[in-house]
Nucleic acid binder design. Structure first.
Lengths: 229, 229
DNA sequence: TTTCTTGGTGTATGAAATACACCAAGATCG
DNA sequence: CGATCTTGGTGTATTTCATACACCAAGAAA
């Protein structure tokens, strides 16, 4: 045991609630544990923080190792320090949440990682440790934050229709929005760029595609603009 | 060195940005460091997390040990994990912010703790470690949160006047509010109880005192009410 | 009793949120 | 090839909420 300290130290981990958006509903990415404790249980991806990496780096590294995901939108959530979170010893975990474009990543996550799978947020299996609680906090944060910051776009493909956008908000906020009012509001913000392009392979009139103008958003924010759905 | 581990572990600390409200302005409580590194510098109160206490417990304990403060409003802020935050070794810190009623605590903090003092948030000395950054994040959080949750009351005495309340918001948000509109709005929320009592010892007409009805607030929240200034 | 300071009140205007329904486009099907 | 079906796309009227704004009252001090 080569590392010794004068006082006992908690172990430090990161865990990550990764959200993705299906056509129908919000999903979260879980991995099946291969070892005790909680062997065979589903859990949030995560692992130990190395002493030479930052917390964000640890979260990104674990995410890639365990699920194959890269370049996700990642944000620190909360740090959980309950004394008996882990039956082995004291473990403090810095929780993150991540948003991914399922359209890009769905296949990858299903193949690269042996035992990773997406679950509907309303139908989760029992989770290891206090991961159910972490998940709840993450979901609450997502629901709260999506209204005041344009993070929802991270869940959609780069080019999306207004209907997709509206459905995303309806799914996360769990309430219906009025189509005309929604369009008036979102287009009025002047954050979307209408592309010269429409949907393909749909069995009805194809909708116009838009993309989110991040550069413009940051500029407006500097001028005091504040996003709100 | 009695505690040994297979892999190197970062040390884990808590730090706390404690805010109080003067007549004039927002203040933060700092302590002067008695040891290297940064000996003599001002810093946020904080210290190591014991292996048998939660993070919240650690924050409360350190706060009492270093500043004499008890029963403060405390909330976890963010966890800072930069690799070189501390020149000695890797230290990850879970930062908190706290709100105290200066009216109750001012004397205490000034006497109990040898080297603790309140500073105007707009006129801070140089701080140790990355405490300046932690402070900035805490202040930003306070400014953001005070508008959407009734945490501002934690900075006022239990019984306060509407003018005090308005000044608190003006100080934190750094903008003037209209007296009549402010009163209309805050009284319309039905969260304040008008007491049969007025200010004492003022050289002008004494204002009515109010208190915040926390029970009622929680009830309204359950019914979907959301606070906003 | 005069003066000075802060307390306390209502209304009119503009901006934004909401409620609401129909025609158009285009693929599919008989 | 016309009928049908599904989703796309649009505007106005109403209500609600935010804002702007000024004067008298109370009470202590001079």
């Amino acid at each position: 045991m080569p590392f010794s300290y004068e006082y006992a130290r908690p172990a430090l981990t990161v865990d990550c609630a990764v959200f993705g958006l299906d056509e129908q509903d919000l999903q979260v990415l879980l991995i099946r544990r291969g070892q005790e404790p909680y062997e065979g249980r589903w859990a949030l991806p995560g692992g130990f923080v190395h002493v030479d990496e930052t917390l964000d780096e640890a979260a990104l590294r674990e995410l890639e190792e365990e699920t194959g995901l890269r370049k996700v939108y990642l944000e620190q959530l909360y740090t959980f320090g309950g004394i008996d979170r882990d039956p082995r010893e004291r473990v403090v975990t810095v929780a993150y949440y991540a948003l991914v474009k399922l359209s890009d990543h769905k296949v990858k996550a299903a193949t690269d990682a042996a035992d990773a799978a997406w679950f509907d947020v309303n139908d989760l299996p029992e989770l290891a440790f206090d991961h159910r609680e972490i998940f709840e906090v993450a979901l609450a944060r997502l629901k709260g934050k999506v209204r005041y910051q344009p993070i929802g776009f991270e869940l959609l493909p780069r080019k999306f229709t207004l209907t997709q956008l509206q459905r995303m908000y309806e799914t996360i906020l769990e309430r219906k929005l009025d189509k005309r009012n929604f369009r008036k509001k979102i287009l009025g913000m002047d954050l979307l760029v209408a592309l010269d392009e429409v949907q393909k392979d749909v069995a009805h009139r194809a909708a116009r595609l838009y993309k989110f103008d991040d550069r413009r958003y940051r500029k407006l924010v500097k001028q005091g603009f504040s996003f709100e759905i």
